[in-house]
């Protein structure tokens, strides 16, 4: 009996050694993967003739103004209270110390579409690069040209106030592996392009999982867990239609912020309509309405 027990023990020890070795190798590879710099991506592929006027509209519609403005325009400092801690938007004026004045167009493209700083730091997905990833080279170049025209601010950036483990940016590499998908809508489908990439409607109108990622199967199904007790309703096309929405309702909402029942939007949706959709052309608002209604 004791001999048999001895065989089992030696076998278990061998297995334990193998498992330990496997774990050690996994840790070494995992650590190397974590500290490896991110791949360079999102380079503007051809020379562009930027259109700053279009860029100003995109900065408004894309929420850059709303999120990066607390006191000085685009100088950051706006607090976002989230389940993971408090985030503060950074200064994106052309100031060379506090802002992004030292960046190139390609640095900007990498930041906006991939969520990676010029130094290789990962941004938290509170910055919706997961939606912006589908923006065209031309639109990125236009936004960059518009930013050059804005007043410079030396307003200091405020560090995010996040508890452990959310303050460990290396974890974002794993998050990106799990949740960051390159999924571009054809820009010719203008309404879809605006909704999915520029206006990033899903960021508020789609519920999130416990790791803060959008639940793809519930795209546009609404989210009642937004910061500051806000909620975003279900805007799936069949729900909008069931609730009596027609294109004229959505177009007026996008222009003025009014709902069909005469109520006005509240919370952060006021910024979306006043700074975002109101800045679009009436043609774009109509295409956006058609896309959301599935027309």
């Amino acid at each position: 009996m004791s001999g048999r027990a001895g065989v089992v023990t030696r076998g278990a020890l061998m297995m334990l050694k193998k498992a330990s070795m496997g774990m050690f190798i996994a840790i070494v590879i995992g650590s190397m993967w974590l500290i490896m710099p991110p791949r360079a991506a999102s380079i503007i592929t051809a020379e562009r003739i930027p259109n700053a006027d279009s860029g100003h509209i995109l900065l408004q519609a894309g929420g850059c103004f709303a999120c990066h403005t607390d006191t000085d325009d685009y100088a950051g400092g706006l607090r976002l209270d989230s389940p993971f801690g408090d985030f503060y938007s950074p200064n994106i004026t052309m100031n060379t110390t506090q802002g992004i004045g030292g960046w190139s167009l390609n640095d900007f493209a990498l930041a906006v579409r991939q969520g990676i700083s010029p130094e290789g730091t990962f941004y938290y997905p509170v910055m919706p690069f997961t939606a912006y990833q589908g923006m065209t080279d031309q639109d990125i170049a236009d936004m960059w040209a518009a930013l050059q025209q804005l007043p410079n601010s030396d307003q200091s950036n405020i560090a995010h106030d996040l508890p452990f483990p959310f303050n460990q940016r290396l974890l974002l590499k794993g998050w990106r592996l799990l949740f960051f998908k390159q999924d571009r809508v054809d820009p010719e489908q203008r309404g879809a392009y605006l909704a999915e990439h520029v206006l990033h409607c899903a960021e508020c109108h789609t519920p999130r999982n416990r790791l803060g990622a959008l639940i793809a199967s519930k795209h546009f199904a609404g989210n009642d867990q937004l910061p500051d007790d806000n909620a975003a309703p279900d805007i799936r096309s069949h729900v909008l239609k069931d609730n009596g929405w027609v294109a004229a309702d959505l177009k007026y909402l996008f222009a003025e912020g009014m709902l069909p029942n005469g109520d006005y939007v509240g919370g952060t949706m006021v910024e979306v309509t006043d700074y975002g959709t109101a800045a679009l052309s009436s043609e774009d608002r109509a295409l956006l309405a058609d896309y959301l209604l599935g027309n």
Binding site: D228, D229, V265, G266, G267, E271
Partner: peptide, 21 residues
């Protein structure tokens, strides 16, 4: 004439009303 009326509504809804959008 709708703009001024709407702006005054939205200013309060934005800051002081939760949940309902």
């Amino acid at each position: 004439g709708m703009k001024g009326v709407g702006d005054s509504c939205k200013e309060c809804h934005k800051r002081f009303r939760a949940k309902k959008n």
